[in-house]
């Protein structure tokens, strides 16, 4: 029973646990900071992917909110406003995509796993969307 002897002698909280937790939290905070670094004065674009392949891309414009069907299979309705998008309905079982709510910042994503659909917000320069994808 070498394994259980190895376990019995352990403390609840060892010094290396604190180091481990600190390193993990620091790395995560750093990753988040890097993700949201380049979010200056850009317009937003919602990129819809199915099975990892881009199927649609909508630039968010200053107009009345509207709805759009982005997946026939699961009847997923995307609600598009000028400052963000929401999945308004989906026929999937878990409804995690609907419960994610509204996303408003570049890099944020709504995912529907059963439908294998994801909606990602990307930043685009307001003047020319084709040349200015900054992510």
């Amino acid at each position: 029973m070498a394994l259980s002897d190895n376990i019995k002698s352990r403390k609840r909280l060892a010094a290396s646990d604190v180091v481990l937790a600190f390193v993990l939290v620091s790395v995560s905070v750093l990753m988040t900071a890097l993700q949201f670094k380049n979010t200056g004065n850009t317009a937003l674009k919602a990129v819809v992917k199915k099975n990892g392949v881009t199927v649609q891309s909508v630039v968010l414009q200053d107009r009345e909110p509207y709805e759009m069907c982005i997946d026939e299979e699961y009847n997923i309705i995307l609600y598009i406003e000028k400052n963000g998008v929401t999945i308004a309905r989906s026929d999937c079982a878990d409804k995690i995509c609907v419960n994610t709510g509204k996303i408003t910042k570049p890099g944020q994503t709504i995912v529907c796993l059963p439908a294998r659909v994801s909606v990602e917000l990307q930043g685009v320069t307001a003047v020319n969307e084709l040349d200015g994808v900054t992510r």
Binding site: R10, K11, R12, L13, A14, S16, D17, L20, A21, L24
Partner: peptide, 9 residues
């Protein structure tokens, strides 16, 4: 070196 909390994490 790890405690139970470290293993859990």
């Amino acid at each position: 070196k790890l405690g139970f909390i470290g293993i859990g994490i």
